[in-house]
Nucleic acid binder design. Sequence first.
DNA 1: GAGTAGATCGGCT
DNA 2: GCCGATCTACTCG
Length: 216
Amino acid sequence: MEISTHVPDIFFQNPDVTEVARQLLGKLLVTEIEGVRTSGIIVETEAYCGLTDRACHAFPLKRTRRTEPMFLPGGHAYVYLCYGLHYLFNVVTGPENEPDAVLIRAVEPVDGISAMMQRRGLDQLSTKISKGPACLARALGISGIQNAKPLTKANGVWIEESPMDFTQGCPKAEWIGSTTRVGVDYAGPDAQKPWRYFIKKNKWVSALPRHLLSDG
DNA sequence: GAGTAGATCGGCT
DNA sequence: GCCGATCTACTCG
């Protein structure tokens, strides 16, 4: 069953990172760690482009030990430690040597919810389980181990086609909202790029500006 | 409910 | 040395 739904590398190697960020909405992010499958529907993403975008760690085509995974071909993982304690999970996109990535910011839990709650220290299910990039990484058991690895079942992290009823494999354009990214003020004018995408009216989406909450 | 401080460490200047 | 693509606990109301 997983075989036919596994998203192919060609999808991730699209040179337009914002398109991949939109098309990832609705797809399933899956991990299998120590035999336990956990997964969630991607409901919020952010695009980062290493060529044109100051908010990207790899701008401008900056190769360091940390950014090196982003130069891999699309379909690899880029996981890094933030504030010394949070792991953030990104999907590398674009062809090799084009350092683009999509940060996964929130998922709607699907499989292995009890394991995810345990990892998050929750005794009852709430959106806290996977709202926010550090939260979902912890819930899914993602850490530095998966950094720079291809997104395959063998590596314990991969992405499956949408389990939702989307005709194009991703939500219709009118279901997708966009706004500015979180925590990128240092990027000057690029901080204004509306490169955060989310599924409207989905309660698992993290910190939205107030004016977008009530609107459909 | 809203605002603020503290945690904690690798990467970079 | 400084600061970050963050989260939580704690305060005050």
